[in-house]
Design a protein around this nucleic acid. Structure first.
Length: 611
RNA sequence: GGGGACGUAGUUCAGUUGGUUAGAAUGCUGCCCUGUCACGGCAGAGGUCGCGGGUUCGAGCCCCGUCGUCCCCGCCA
């Protein structure tokens, strides 16, 4: 039998009562976390978002409440009315914040019962993520998940407060908008009123925020949902939340200072002080030193070691002399057995084949003819990594191009990228040994980095054309425009585009935009896009550009990813209340689903395939 | 689109070379217990081994297919 709530009100949460509250009469409400039945004495651990408090049902104190407690089960919702009581010295529970007291109930109301849950919110996360997602409401009862959502809330709030104080307005942009089919696939929404036409859910509010700058709103931000119909990853959900901002008359550094400001504020409220400004690195340097455009600075960089090889050494090791040779150090790694080394060598060679090979410096050093070379490589790598020396048992790998290898057309950084992949593979494999990815709590856990000067164009092997590396409204460096490189040397044109990177994770991406119609037309021409095509796709925006567009720029950062890092999680699902699976299914609601024929008819849609 | 890992009780897992009735812990149900806090004690229930097909005298185990979850590559202006 369930009890009615009546006019009862909660007086305290389950996390706040302390020894100083002893003697107070309180009403607590919450979920039964655990029940311990000692016959005439029953303990209930009552849980809510704030914590857990022990309720005692003593047959002598509460002859009516006690029999009710006998039938209470985990996840029942109850109200306990009684007196806060100090626990005896021998029964204080030092593991609980409320462990010095308990509530001696005089009355117990069973407000609701519960089916036996498939897993207990009182325990740590179960392995079976399918079950967690299907019963997400139970999973979210776990303190860990509640804490993660708290982090997310705090970050969003800190960002809002900071940006508002800096003069930014939060302005909403439409979710039902126009499809601009470039880049990611759009989620489409059919129009009922206009048969055969579709809205698209925004991949980002890009054009709207630029138009807000044209409108003179000066500083805009929005914590906004974005949608991309692409395959998922641990750090990619089909709908995700961005901290999106745009400002008028900025230099790159102006944007950097704003972002550094709100990140400092957000990390601060989560108890993780960080140091600003963050280091800057050009794209070119990032690739040469880390082989990737989102370097993880928690591990040492790679070293270009071609200079330490003599011509004879290159020849006898069958290394192509005209190309870079890259050394990778993984510190604090223990030695491997010969069998492990052999298997490892095969694996690595498969990873870098066919144009590249790798040299194990440890092995190189044991051959008399190359021991001096090995020492020179060690020394060069140690110097570059800021180490006193490279320990011999640390895996030091040199990726080298085989004789006859040639760089692919228009990608002279290819060897660095390949080596960079290998560096990350190694880092992941020896994670347990180098421990560089573990939180140390010494204020050194968060390695932020600005990556700047991305190439403006990217060669598309499929279509054999230059395509934009970002979006087509990103401004090139003015000096590259003035020098005429747009026509003479597209590969050398740099974009005023920048990424903010944290521990090897891309947190966000932005740019200074094009504000001049003539430059915009030049870009479209360089991309081989006709005037008509540009008009058809972005006409409304190109029109707006002609009415006094000020120089402007901005950035967007993934709120989910920031929360993920702060929560120490390795998947966005841990910081998203209702996430989707790798196949973009919501296991709780079963979305997406088929819809009725009547609905389809109204939308003028006939599916070609039914599942 | 491609590669990899996994799928056995509600949950976490074990299951030998293919061999009798598929086990443990926990959870669940009932009874007992006045100081537990992962309470304890006794008893009990709980399985289409993801699904379909094949090989075999015999399949949780081997083979093929399929579905699902996770990770990675492609993709993500």
């Amino acid at each position: 039998m369930l009890d009615f709530l009546g006019t009862r009100q909660r007086t305290n949460t389950c996390g706040e009562l302390r020894a100083a509250d002893a003697g107070k009469t309180v009403t607590l409400m919450g979920w039964v976390n655990r029940r311990r039945d000692h016959g005439n004495l029953i303990f209930l651990d009552l849980r809510d978002r704030y914590g857990i408090t022990q309720i005692v049902l003593d047959k002598e104190i509460s002859p009516e409440g006690h029999p009710k407690a006998e039938h209470v089960r985990p996840e029942y919702v109850v109200a306990a009315i009684g007196k806060v009581r100090l626990r005896g010295a021998d029964v204080i529970n030092p593991k609980m914040p409320t462990g010095e007291i308990e509530v001696a109930a005089t009355e117990l109301l069973v407000l609701n019962d519960s089916k036996v849950p498939p897993f207990s919110p009182a325990e740590d996360a179960i392995q079976n993520e399918e079950v967690r997602l299907k019963y997400r409401y139970l999973d979210l009862r776990r303190p860990e998940m509640q804490h993660n959502l708290e982090i997310r809330h705090k970050v969003a709030l800190a960002v809002r407060e900071y940006l508002s104080a800096q003069g930014f307005y939060e302005i909403e942009t439409p979710y039902l908008t126009r499809s601009t089919p470039e880049g990611a696939r759009d989620y489409l929404v059919p129009s009922r009123v206009h048969p055969g036409t579709f809205y698209a859910l925004p991949q980002s509010p890009q054009l709207f925020k630029q138009i807000l700058m044209i409108s003179g709103l000066d500083k805009y931000f929005q914590i906004v949902r974005c949608f991309r119909d692409e395959d998922l990853r641990a750090d990619r959900q089909p709908e995700f939340t961005q901290i999106d901002l745009e400002m008028t008359f900025p230099q790159q550094e102006t944007v950097f200072r704003v972002v550094e400001g709100f990140l400092k504020a957000a990390f601060e409220v989560c108890g993780e002080p960080i140091v600003t400004p963050f280091p800057r690195m050009t794209y070119d340097e990032a690739i040469r030193r880390y082989g990737i455009d989102k370097p993880d600075l928690r591990l040492p960089p790679m070293t270009e070691v071609r200079d330490v090889f003599s011509a004879e050494e290159l020849a006898s090791l069958k290394i192509e002399p005209g190309l870079p040779i890259v050394a990778i150090v993984i510190p604090n790694k223990t030695a491997m057995s010969n069998t492990q080394k052999k298997a490892f060598a095969q694996e690595i060679n498969a990873a870098v084949a066919p144009d590249l090979a790798y040299l194990d410096v440890e092995r190189l050093g044991s051959a008399a003819q190359f021991s001096a070379l090995a020492q020179r490589i060690d020394a060069a790598a140690a110097k570059n990594c800021g180490l006193a020396r490279v320990e011999p048992e640390n895996r030091l790998i040199v990726v080298s191009p085989r004789i006859g290898a040639t760089a692919p057309a228009r990608d002279h950084l290819w060897i660095y990228k390949k080596a960079g992949q290998l560096r990350l593979d190694l880092a992941r494999r020896f994670e347990g040994e180098h421990k560089a990815f573990e939180k140390k709590g010494a204020g050194d856990d968060y390695k932020f980095l600005w990556v700047t000067d991305f190439p403006f164009f990217e060669w598309d092997e499929e279509t054999k054309t230059w395509t934009f590396a970002h979006h087509p409204f990103t401004s090139p460096h003015e000096s590259d425009l003035i020098a005429g490189r747009m026509e003479s040397d597209p590969e050398a044109v740099r974009a005023l585009a920048y990424d903010i990177v944290l521990n090897g994770l891309e947190l966000g991406s932005g740019s200074i935009r094009i504000h001049r119609q003539d430059v915009q037309q030049q870009i479209f021409r360089a991309l081989g896009m006709s005037e008509e095509e540009a008009q058809a796709r972005f006409g409304f925006f190109l029109e707006a550009l002609q009415y006094g567009t000020p120089p402007h720029g901005g950035i967007a950062l993934g709120l989910d990813r920031i929360a993920m890092v702060l929560a120490g999680a390795s998947s966005l699902r841990e910081v998203t209340a209702f996430p989707k699976t790798a196949k973009a299914i919501d296991l709780m609601t079963d979305a997406p689903t088929e819809v009725s024929d009547a609905q389809l008819k109204e939308l003028h849609i006939r599916p070609a395939v039914r599942s």
